[in-house]
């Protein structure tokens, strides 16, 4: 640690092996921007890809990526959760959802009313969604609601557990399960409609 404090640039190879959480700790200790750059290099493409999948244009996605990383930098000292990637994705999803809500003034729908219902986690749609052609997936995404897109990305791209999704969205487990179920159903419905159009 003393070596890192004195000359953080020398230990480039060791930095590559450092965990995200260690890098955050070092950044907070030293204030050296190179530690933040290392986190940026690890996550910028992943954050951009999520933004591009959720937002309408590439320029929105680029702007959002910049805003998200500034937010991360400002709030880095507040990072207390065990997994850094989940925290960074949480900021990304919530930023994009807020952005689209502001843009289109979408009505916020609460699903907590479903908290008493026992919802099955998997209705067998997973394989159908995961094995879809990537171009068709992109097309279907273009017609989807931001919240549906974000929850499907969390589940299938980031492979977050239900508990982690609950943390990201600050919702109950039942609400999250219901959101996933509804998102899957709407996804398949749009996909089938698109198939009908193209047929």
């Amino acid at each position: 640690m003393i070596v890192n404090l004195l000359n953080p640039l020398v230990t480039h190879s060791s930095k590559k092996m450092m965990s995200d959480e260690d890098i955050v700790e070092q950044y907070l200790l030293t204030g050296n921007i190179h530690y933040f750059n290392l986190l940026y290099d690890r996550y910028n493409n992943k954050v951009y890809a999520k933004c591009a999948a959720m937002l309408k244009t590439e320029s929105w996605a680029e702007d959002a990526t910049q805003e998200i990383f500034i937010k991360i930098l400002i709030h880095l000292s507040r990072f207390t959760k065990s997994k850094f990637s989940t925290w960074i994705y949480s900021i990304t999803y919530n930023y994009c959802i807020d952005f689209i809500r502001k843009e289109s003034r979408e009505k916020v729908t609460s699903l907590d009313e479903y908290s008493h219902i026992d919802i099955p986690e998997n209705l067998g749609l997973d394989a159908e969604i995961l094995e879809m052609n990537v171009f068709k997936l992109r097309k279907v995404f273009g017609f989807m609601h931001i919240e549906d897109k974000s929850i499907l990305l969390m589940k299938y791209l980031d492979e977050l557990s239900i508990k982690e999704i609950c943390e990201v969205l600050n919702k109950s487990e039942s609400a999250v399960k219901m959101k996933i179920l509804r998102a899957k159903e709407r996804f398949i419905k749009i996909y089938q409609q698109q198939q009908g159009v193209s047929a």
Binding site: K46, A49, K50, A53, I129, L130, E131, M132, N133, V134, L137, R138, F141, L152, L153, Y156, L157
Partner: peptide, 8 residues
């Protein structure tokens, strides 16, 4: 196969 990872 994971179409979401392919999309990314």
């Amino acid at each position: 196969k994971n179409s979401f990872k392919e999309l990314e």
